[in-house]
Nucleic acid binder design. Sequence first.
DNA 1: TTCCTTGGAGAGTGGAACTATCCAACCATG
DNA 2: CATGGTTGGATAGTTCCACTCTCCAAGGAA
Lengths: 215, 215
Amino acid sequence: MKLAELSERSGLPAATIKYYLREQLLPPGRRITATQAEYGDDHLRRLRLVRALIQVGRMPVATARQVLAAVEDESLDQNTRLGAAVWALPQGPKPVEDDPATAVARREVELLMRRLAWQECLDAGEEAPAWATLVVAVSALVRLGYPCDADDLAPYARAAAQLAVTDLDLVEGFSTPLEQVEAAVALTVLYEPVLLSLRRLAEAEESNRRFGTGD
Amino acid sequence: MKLAELSERSGLPAATIKYYLREQLLPPGRRITATQAEYGDDHLRRLRLVRALIQVGRMPVATARQVLAAVEDESLDQNTRLGAAVWALPQGPKPVEDDPATAVARREVELLMRRLAWQECLDAGEEAPAWATLVVAVSALVRLGYPCDADDLAPYARAAAQLAVTDLDLVEGFSTPLEQVEAAVALTVLYEPVLLSLRRLAEAEESNRRFGTGD
DNA sequence: TTCCTTGGAGAGTGGAACTATCCAACCATG
DNA sequence: CATGGTTGGATAGTTCCACTCTCCAAGGAA
């Protein structure tokens, strides 16, 4: 199919698709002539994935490019590729150095990881983007005086561990390595808004249960 | 303290604080003369909260203004005020109408809510921003062909329900109504990156456990 | 008095994600 | 074979947002 048809079927303006092609979020189509290219169903699917990552997952375009590059990097073995793809995912401010709240946060996070015996994470430490993000969030809570030591974080970590099992079960449901990696990225990113929305709904429900008048 | 000192103590440029004052994220200081104002520790604290909401919680400035307005709205009773504050929180694209994936997502989300008997949420339905966000995320998953019917969502909902109990326990640890509402907002928003980071770390751990070579 | 500082207002900046405009090559039609 | 519309690629422009800069009159300090 031509770019115009890809545009129509995906519901995106042709100009946006051209932009994604330029930004290498979408591989170029098969060249038919010097000025025309042919796109396939895989392009349409990729376009939907890109859209989901950017709009629903709120991922910056530059990050999406890196993630998708890792997904397709045939030179990496499955385990590394999966790691690289998810590794490239997060964004966010770096921890503020020389700050007492940051120091406290670092200590509590490391303590939590030790208690959980998450060895992989301990090895990577703050190199892991997710670890750094965690430290930043905890230090903000510390600065505001809200409880967030290792004991307070533990319930969240337990929930996260449960969810990770569920996630990986879903990923293992796919047969080919490429499908698995893509699924890992898509499910990691797209289940995030799902989880956060459900938490807010559950909070509303629980709040009403506790404080609600029986109106 | 003067604005310059507030700037130094918070670590923010004076221009940024002026901007927050203009945007009503920070209440004006007590006027000393026609051209000078006095700020207190509560301003410093509010400034840290604003920073946390915007930087860590990635909340748009306009949203933060609404949320903080609700927190301080003395005309509302505690329950309503808490609801209004958290209600104003999320942002995100609205569901695409006339789309089969959206229709599927709506159906599955409603089914899930019925099974969980989250009555408050069912009453509000898609009026609730979190519900709408959930529908958008699920519809993106549906479009990509990933599993996300009510059964797949159930584990996430269970985890969310557990977390909501933990969250509300923390909120109830505060004594005054104002503290409780502020805590509800801060904990809801700031524990989100905590939860997501922990999930990603847990995924890395679980992934290594399943696919990892013993290197 | 004189000079520096302060808070407020409006304009300006930079980054991100598009979006509009051109243009030469192409293809379909008469 | 002309010719008018279409295509994909390059370039520049637009919009939004979160700041950030510049100016200015009023205050305060030496």
